[in-house]
């Protein structure tokens, strides 16, 4: 039953995304322009650690922007309608899944663009792709719950950044460290423990969302 609910909710999310293409387009444009600004302002300063740190900071901001709108733009009428139809667990799980999938697409897009502009450093390293995908899934699963909290308050972009950044900062540090190792030629076994920590974190935030989201939902 819950699977069906989640599936149809995901269908609804993608349909909405397709009909409001400008929202997603805005984030893609954000990625492109940020990378272009970095390309212009970091000329001559590029080293491998700087490249790596810059890339992750851009990805962190992009996921903050993306996840913010998953609850921020839901109007109250539609919320009430969803409330009568679906269970809160199905709603939060579908949001996390949709955010993760969209973020994987955006992350890969950003990665390709970044390699294009800033010098192809990581394109041929499969371990880096693995870290990238695990990382963006980690970002989305932690931030979706934060967005559910911030979405209940007006003027929520600042709030989202204030609430979300301390929570993803350790994750960001972990990702920068392990992806730098991947750039310097580490294999899957070397970054394996870091990836496991991130997966553990994803599991914990799924569990917490499952328990805590019903309290946010009944408004």
């Amino acid at each position: 039953m819950v699977h069906r609910e989640i599936l149809s909710l995901i269908h609804k999310e993608f349909l909405l995304e397709w009909r409001q293409k400008h929202a997603l387009g805005g984030i893609v444009l954000y990625l492109v322009s940020t990378i272009f600004i970095c390309y212009l302002s970091f000329t001559g300063l590029m080293s491998v650690p700087v490249w790596n740190a810059l890339f992750w900071i851009i990805i962190a901001f992009a996921s903050l922007n993306l996840v913010l709108k998953s609850f921020g733009e839901e109007n109250s009428g539609r919320k009430l309608y969803l409330y009568t139809l679906a269970s809160p667990q199905a709603v939060i799980f579908s949001k996390i899944l949709v955010n993760s999938l969209t973020m994987i697409v955006l992350g890969v897009l950003g990665f390709i663009l970044f390699n294009l502009f800033m010098g192809n450093i990581a394109g041929g390293k499969p371990v880096y792709w693995l870290v990238l995908i695990t990382g963006v899934v980690g970002f989305s699963s932690v931030l979706t719950m934060v967005s559910a909290i911030a979405g209940q308050v007006r003027n929520n972009f600042t709030l989202m950044a204030v609430l979300g950044f301390p929570l993803i900062l350790p994750l960001l540090l972990l990702l920068i460290r392990s992806s730098l190792a991947a750039l310097q030629g580490a294999g899957v076994a070397d970054v394996g423990s870091d990836l496991l920590v991130i997966l553990l974190l994803v599991l914990i935030s799924l569990t917490l969302s499952n328990i805590l989201f019903p309290y946010l939902w009944k408004d």
Partner: peptide, 18 residues
Amino acid sequence: ARLVAVYKIFAFVIMFVF
């Protein structure tokens, strides 16, 4: 009260893990 309680529990567990 509801929002801050949810945030606090979520953040506490995540920070504890880290």
